[in-house]
């Protein structure tokens, strides 16, 4: 049997305008374009995101504090030219990885070292080249997320169970007193 497993794309989401990106999860896809579509279907169903990025996982360097502590710059390539890296960090008591300041470095390994040096309280860190991102955050982003916001059945107020139960309780006590 031939392998049917497609590459993994890491999914990042922006929870609201002006907020930092955070790690969402991942999808499998043949290419970045379909990865972004799958990411939208899986991570953008409820109105919890206003923008999504996908990045091929093979380009994301992931290290935990344990690993960073004995991390050596084994692929220190001085010939490579500098490029920008996005940095996502799990810090303090936070459970989710959030966007941290970008770093410029000639390799992912050096980017990792520079990123971690500049962060306090970093439990785990991801870095990847800024050029690896495919994003919904273009002029089309608004129209792709807008439909989620007018779906009334995605709104808790559409299921007024507390008010319904209160009514039933009131009716019951009225009958008792009558």
């Amino acid at each position: 049997m031939t392998s049917t497993q497609w590459p993994v794309y890491q999914v990042f989401e922006r929870p609201a305008h002006g907020r930092p990106m955070r790690v969402g999860g991942s999808v499998h896809a043949v290419d970045a374009e379909t990865a972004l579509q799958n990411a939208w279907a899986v991570y953008g169903r409820r109105p919890t995101a206003v923008g999504l990025w996908v990045v091929p996982r093979r380009l994301v360097l992931m290290k935990t504090k344990e690993e960073v502590d004995d991390f050596t710059q084994d692929r220190d390539n001085r010939a490579a030219s500098d490029q920008s890296f996005y940095v996502f960090c799990r810090s303090g008591a936070k459970l989710v990885y959030e966007e941290a300041p970008q770093v410029v470095a000639p390799s992912p390994e050096q980017a990792m070292v520079r990123a971690v040096a500049g962060l306090n309280d970093c439990f785990a860190c991801w870095v990847f080249p800024a050029a690896a991102v495919t994003s919904t955050e273009s002029q089309t982003a608004e129209c792709s997320f807008a439909p989620q916001h007018y779906k009334w059945f995605r709104d808790h107020k559409s299921f007024p169970i507390v008010a319904m139960l209160r009514e039933i309780r009131a009716d019951a006590s009225e009958r008792k007193h009558a």
């Binding site: 409820r46 459970l95 989710v96 299921f159 007024p160 169970i161 319904m164 139960l165």
Partner: peptide, 24 residues
């Protein structure tokens, strides 16, 4: 696992509410 559960819980509350509303 914890991160997946956080996402799921916030959506699952809708499911419980819609089910309870049907039963009520």
């Amino acid at each position: 696992y914890a991160r997946a559960m956080l996402r799921i819980c916030s959506e699952e509350t809708f499911h419980k509410k819609q089910g309870q509303e049907i039963v009520i």
